[in-house]
Simulated assay, not measured.
Amino acid sequence: MADFMNLGRGENSNYPRLRCFDLWKLHSWAGGLTEFRDGRNQESTSEAVNGYYSAALMGLAYGDAHLVAVGSTLSAMEIHSAQTWWHVREGDTLYAQDFTRENRVVGILWANKRDSGLWFAPPKWRECRLGIQLLPLLPISEVLFSEIGYVRELVAWTLPALAREGVEEGWKGFLYALEGIYDKEGALSKIRSLNEYDDGNSLTNLLWWIHSRDNEEEGCEGGGKFCWFDHYCH
C-alpha cells in the first residue's frame, strides 16, 4: 500500500506523496517515470480506482479517518477522469469525430495521444478494452459505470466482437456484468453459460453482482445505490 498511497507520514515521509497520482490531470499514470516517445500513459482506470478504494477500506478497518478521506477523494477523482477521458459516448466532441465514431472506450491514454489498442490486445479486441476498464468487479464499479446510457452504448459496441474466434470466456464475463446493469435476466442467462472466468473474477462474484442490481436511483443520503461504503458502515 505504501508504494502508491504514501501520505508523507512516519517512515515513508521521505517519499513523494501520492506517488503515481497526477494532481493536475486528476488521475494516475501507470507509466510515469519510464521514458516513452509519447510520454506518460495509463491503461486500466478501474485498477487505479480500486487501488484508492481499497486504501479507503483499509482506513475504515483501522479507524484511520485521514486514509479514508484521501482514498475516497482520489477514487472520486479517478472516476471523474475515467468518465471524462476514457469513456467515449456517441456524439462526444472531446475527440476527433472519426475517433468518436469508431470507439466507445479508449485503450491507453498517453500524455500526447490516445490509443485504441492495449498493451496486450489490438483495437478489434473490444471485449478486452471493456474488461480492462472494469476489472476487478467490486462495489465501486457501479459508481465508475453509473451512467446507464453510456453502459448501453458500450455493451452494444462490444457485443459484436464476441463473434470473433478465440474470444476468452473471462472477458465475456465482464461484458455480461455491465449488461446486467440494465438487463439482469438476460445477463444472468449468459453468465450461467460461461465455462471459465477471469483470474480476478469468479461465478460467485458475477452472481453477487447480478443479483445486487436493482432499479433504485437514490443518492448517498440514507444509504442509496451509489453510497460507496454503505456495505461497511453500520
Results as ranks from 00 to 15, higher is better:
Pro123Gln: 11
Leu134Asp: 00
Ile132Tyr: 04
Pro136Gly: 03
Val105Tyr: 03
Ile132Gln: 08
Val105Trp: 01
Leu135Asp: 06
Cys128Trp: 07
Trp119His: 12
Ala121Tyr: 01
Lys113Trp: 10
Cys128Pro: 02
Gly117Phe: 14
Glu102Trp: 02
Arg101Tyr: 03
Leu134Pro: 01
Pro122His: 10
Leu135Gln: 11
Asn112Gln: 11
Ile132Ala: 06
Pro136Leu: 03
Leu134Arg: 04
Pro123Ser: 13
Val106His: 02
Trp110Pro: 06
Arg104Met: 07
Ala111Leu: 13
Trp110His: 14
Ser116His: 04
Val106Gly: 10
Phe120Gly: 05
Leu134Trp: 02
Arg101Val: 07
Lys124Tyr: 14
Arg101Glu: 14
Val105Lys: 00
Arg126Leu: 07
Pro136Ala: 11
Asn112Cys: 13
Gly107Cys: 04
Asp115Trp: 15
Trp125Gly: 02
Cys128Ala: 08
Ala121Ser: 15
Leu118Ser: 06
Lys113Leu: 11
Leu134Ala: 06
Lys124Gln: 11
Leu118Arg: 08
Asp115Tyr: 10
Leu118Ala: 12
Leu135Thr: 11
Leu109Glu: 11
Glu127Lys: 02
Ile132Cys: 03
Trp119Ile: 14
Ala121Leu: 03
Ile108Arg: 14
Trp110Phe: 13
Leu109Phe: 09
Glu127Leu: 06
Gly117Tyr: 13
Gln133Asp: 02
Gly107Ile: 05
Gly107Ser: 04
Arg129Ser: 05
Arg104Phe: 02
Gln133Thr: 06
Asp115Ala: 12
Glu127Gly: 09
Arg104Thr: 08
Asn103Ala: 02
Arg114Gly: 06
Leu134Ser: 00
Ala111Thr: 14
Gly131Trp: 01
Leu109Asn: 09
Ser116Asp: 06
Pro122Lys: 10
Cys128Lys: 13
Trp125Gln: 10
Leu130Pro: 01
Asn112Phe: 15
Trp125Pro: 01
Gly131Asp: 04
Lys113Cys: 14
Val106Arg: 04
Leu118Asn: 05
Pro122Thr: 14
Asn112Tyr: 13
Ile108Lys: 08
Arg129Ala: 05
Glu102Asp: 13
Pro122Val: 15
Asp115Cys: 09
Val105Asp: 03
Leu135Ala: 12
Arg101Lys: 15
Asp115Gln: 12
Arg114Asp: 00
Pro122Ala: 14
Gln133Trp: 01
Arg126Val: 03
Gln133Ile: 06
Arg126Trp: 04
Glu102Asn: 11
Cys128Tyr: 04
Ala121Asp: 09
Ile108Asp: 08
Leu118Lys: 06
Ser116Ala: 15
Ile132Phe: 04
Ala121Ile: 01
Arg101Pro: 00
Asn103Met: 04
Trp119Thr: 12
Asp115Thr: 13
Gln133Val: 03
Leu118Gly: 08
Gly131Leu: 04
Arg126Met: 03
Arg114Met: 12
Trp119Ala: 13
Arg126Tyr: 01
Pro123Trp: 09
Ile108Tyr: 08
Trp119Met: 14
Ala111Glu: 15
Asn112Asp: 12
Ile132Trp: 00
Leu118Pro: 02
Phe120Arg: 12
Phe120Thr: 12
Asn112Arg: 13
Leu135Tyr: 07
Glu102His: 05
Ala121Cys: 03
Gly107Gln: 09
Arg114Val: 15
Lys124Glu: 15
Lys124His: 13
Leu137Met: 02
Thr100Lys: 02
Gly131Asn: 05
Ala111Tyr: 06
Trp110Val: 07
Gly117Trp: 08
Asn103Pro: 01
Gln133Glu: 01
Trp119Ser: 15
Lys124Thr: 08
Ser116Trp: 02
Glu102Pro: 00
Ala111Met: 14
Cys128Arg: 10
Ile108Gly: 03
Arg129Ile: 11
Thr100Val: 15
Leu135Arg: 15
